[in-house]
Amino acid sequence: MSASTSPRTRLRRGRLFRAIPTAWRTPLAMVGAIIALAWIVIALIAPWAAPHDPLAQQLPRLTAPGDASVLGTDQVGRDVFSRLLTGARVTMPLALLMVVSATVLGTLIGSIAGFVGGWVDETLMRLTDLIMAFPTVILAMIIAASLGPSLLNAVIAGIVVSWPQYARVVRSLVLSLRTQNFVIAGRLLGYSPWRSLRSDILPNVAGPVLVLASLDIGTAILLLTGLSFLGLGAQPPAAEWGSMISGAMSHIDAWWLGVFPGLAILTVVMAFNFIGDSLRDALDPLSSAEREGAAGGTEHEEPAAVENPTTEEGR
């Protein structure tokens, strides 16, 4: 039997490596992955797939979905379908940019705080407390408003409000890892602090941070569309889902103006949350052990501390 297929071996392997393939096996993750992939494809092909220029005001105004226009037209005669497809190109990459930046910033600050400790840690953690003390959305609104309404500023506001959660998680992981024997062994072998962080600590922080980030993509999309809805993000005439809904507010009887971008936001957020949830479950040792079923019982009674190398080979 090859090592990678035996359930016993899978239990012991690095959790992240194990988690990704198992995560895809749950139906929830499959649904999430398919929807997310579909939206990514849409975003990529939107310029060619859109039947009309998303900004051109050339169609009859406020026509209901029908033959002329699949999803209808808006108050100035733009094609809702074309705007919806183009919107995917705006929101998703920016949400991703926001999450990646917040992750990098949070991981950097969190690992410095955890590794250096002392007053550096104290100062950085009070800073995260300060930011986390405010309701996220309100704080993002204040920052976006003070920077001036634009989509980029909305992204910056998003990064400012979301890095502290990464910093806190990373800090606590680093704090527990730095006292682990293998990290100390590295230091005794002459690792510099930077090397210790890079080669011993951060690779073991990656798993939980990845889960946090994947769960955060949905939130980021919601935040960006929300800020655009409030007029603090994307500016007219940009084709952005949040501002599309915002524009629909004054034409409440033209239901198609709000419903379709709303559905777009709903499905994207849901898809990324499904993926994040499944990834978290797969990384959680408890739930993955349950899934292993058969091998679970023997492992739990008497841990397989086999001295004989040949039994290891056999698995």
Binding site: G293, A294, A295, G296, G297, T298, E301
Partner: peptide
Amino acid sequence: AFGRHDPVQVV
């Protein structure tokens, strides 16, 4: 033995 399908006999 442990496990329903593919049981592992321990005693």
